[in-house]
Write a protein that binds this DNA or RNA. Structure first.
Lengths: 388, 388
DNA sequence: TACGTTTGTGGGAACGTTTGCGATAGATAA
DNA sequence: TTATCTATCGCAAACGTTCCCACAAACGTA
């Protein structure tokens, strides 16, 4: 028998317990037939910060004495609204600093005006500038960007897709991790009708719009440049073998060799996971060869820089004894000595195009056909490959 | 007299035009008293991509034959739901791949579980890693992060705040642009009751929680290190004079001078806007001095690198003729030659702490008191300041 | 005047979830 | 039995906006 006063009639004899509500005892008063729970002061655990109310359409409607529909229409310049009403509404809206509640809007329209972006990481200037490109185009069209980093972990990537999707993104722009080899998580979203755009590292299993660096031509140009500079044995540091960019860049390399009638030497190709250790071990292996390479082309600038630092540590002169070239035109290229020859892949533009492809797909809708765009880059020749 | 069939009674004689709806002709049938518009096939311009319906709580409720409330409570392990019902609901939910509609949830609860972050840019590793820190902590607590770049433009920053706010972010973590000198846009949001956290570049006008690099101690350590290395005239490249980090870092510098009884020389202090041009012009000015400095401490690594490249261009040997030190421990520091001495400001951790401060404020709510956290860093001595 | 036509506005459902309050059929105690 | 409890569930409001439909009043026109 609880000794609790009814919060309505204040009697306590008639109060009896009646189950639990959210962990709290609920009481029922026989006298006044009233259910209640005790709102103790320790209700502070309520960390749902209710913000101050914003002006809504309803406020305006009430103030002027029209219906919400009218206000909504007036604000959207719907032709059905009289000049006077429209003006009055707009004026009051401005006065009350009315801001449409995007949440309600998204909720009602079932679209959030948000693009989800998944990239391996933000540390590399490569992805950072692609992201900037995406953001630029998205912002122009009134879209927001929600970013996730996969940290080159496939598992995280899958989780990221989940997170973004449950936030109702309108589209997904993604560059896969170097681990990713299965694409069910992508296919699933496409079935749900979400536009998916790939960039950089691409998935060949599914048909999506995609934007690529000109990997083949870039690799070709770098290789051609090295050949023309007189280097005879050009070694290559690639990424994981299954990664499509590895394959494409290797294609450019072999094409250049073919054009200049140079032999393709298996032992000069190294597939790495882009980590410092794997790269250095490849280089070390090459250095033990009888026929050492006289040039190393790394498919990533970061890798090329590891190579250079390693070579410098071994007192091997660049480019006299060994030329080095990279891919991506990282800002570091102009800092390291000698400056690193690289291929400016226009990553910012890649990001822009990716976002544009998203909007294309949005507009063309169901009669949309996936497109592949290739962004041209340019070879930037610096000291690391030019003797003398 | 239009020849349009009523979509209800199919007569056409009784149909007459009745205004416009959204630009489309509206018709009214006298016979059946019915208003309608023609839904032509060319309704394809409707690029509001309605996605495939997700399973909702209502679907589950109908399927099992209970009310939505019951389903909601069952999924939340509310004690009022019987074991059997709960199980049945959870099972079906799993089977139908039920995902709660976060949009509806945010809408109902008036909170989005999203933190807005505004940073000057993503290109610098400084902000990128702070961002990673924020994201890490946020994700752990089930919060998302919405990122905006101000591009060091105050105007853009203000617009960013607008954008984020109208998306109902639950809190704002911001590092101001170097231009920003007025803070009304911040005050406004604080009045609305949303938590604002500052990091790095801080606003002293308003009372917010904030997390700082240990600018003073960092600067002190760098200066002390230079003094101990025997450098006599240490020049400083700072940011804009109004920027609080400039002032704090200068404080550390002067404190070190004081401790070692060195004179403070006005002409060795340069306030720049961190651009390459302004930095180089400062350096050039110093080089014309009779009493040239023998060490340059740049408050940003990027700036220090500009300095080094410029000095190298002038064949000035580092550190023999001029030592250089930076602040921030940018990855480039280990790439440039000689390696750049710098202060590792633990920016990743700064980001983490910033996010934590947000959650603190969220929990403590109205009885919350702004805190200032300082993240300790460490001096990293490299070749650019150590002779021989 | 009588009818056809247009204009301007209101009503209300829908979007998915949470949650305070009621309600009821059994269970338990008196 | 009766009085009291309890476990379990339903109802409905609220969040802000859009948009389909209905309708009355005004406006033309014959």
């Amino acid at each position: 028998m609880p000794r609790v006063k009814c919060s309505k009639c204040s009697k306590s004899e008639t109060v009896l317990r009646s189950g639990f509500i959210r962990g709290k005892q609920r009481y029922f008063c026989k006298a006044c037939h009233y259910n209640f729970t005790l709102h103790h002061e320790n209700r502070k655990s309520n960390n749902e910060v209710k913000r101050k109310r914003q002006t809504t359409i309803i406020d305006i409607a009430k103030a002027i004495g029209v219906s919400n529909s009218t206000v909504s229409r007036a604000l959207h310049d719907h032709p059905d609204i009289s000049f006077n009403t429209r003006n009055a509404i707009k004026e009051l809206a401005k006065k009350l600093d009315y801001q449409p509640n995007l949440l309600a809007l998204s909720f009602a329209n079932r679209q959030t005006h948000t693009i989800g972006v998944i990239i391996p990481n933000l540390d590399s200037s490569f992805f950072a500038s692609a992201l900037s490109g995406i953001q630029h185009v998205a912002t122009q069209s009134g879209y927001k960007v929600m970013i996730c980093q996969s940290n080159e972990s496939h598992k995280t990537e899958v989780a990221n897709v989940q997170t973004l999707m449950s936030n109702w993104i309108d589209g997904l722009i993604i560059c896969h991790t170097k681990e990713t080899e299965t694409f069910d998580h992508i296919k699933l979203q496409m079935q749900k009708g979400i536009p998916v755009i790939h960039f950089g590292r691409v998935c060949e299993e599914v048909e999506t719009s995609r934007v690529l660096h000109d990997d083949i031509d870039g690799s070709f140009q770098i290789t051609e440049h090295l050949i023309k500079q007189g280097y005879q044995r050009i070694a290559v540091i690639g990424g994981p073998e299954k990664l499509s960019i590895s394959r494409r860049r290797l294609t450019g390399y072999t094409e250049a060799l073919k054009k200049y009638n140079r032999p393709y030497q298996e032992q000069l190709i190294a597939y790495t996971d882009f980590t410092k250790e794997s790269i250095i071990s490849s280089v070390d292996k090459w250095l033990t060869l009888k026929q050492k390479p006289d040039a190393i082309y790394s498919m990533s600038d970061r890798g090329a820089i590891y190579v250079m630092m390693h070579l410098k540590g071994k007192k091997i002169r660049i480019p006299a004894q060994m030329a080095v070239a990279g891919f991506g035109n990282d800002p570091m290229d102009e800092v390291i000595e000698p400056n690193l020859t690289s291929y400016n892949a226009q990553t910012y533009k890649v990001g822009e195009v990716a976002a544009q492809l998203f909007f294309d797909q949005l507009i063309e809708n169901e009669n949309f056909i996936p497109k592949t765009r290739v962004v041209k880059g340019e070879l930037i020749i610096r000291g690391s490959t030019v003797k003398g």
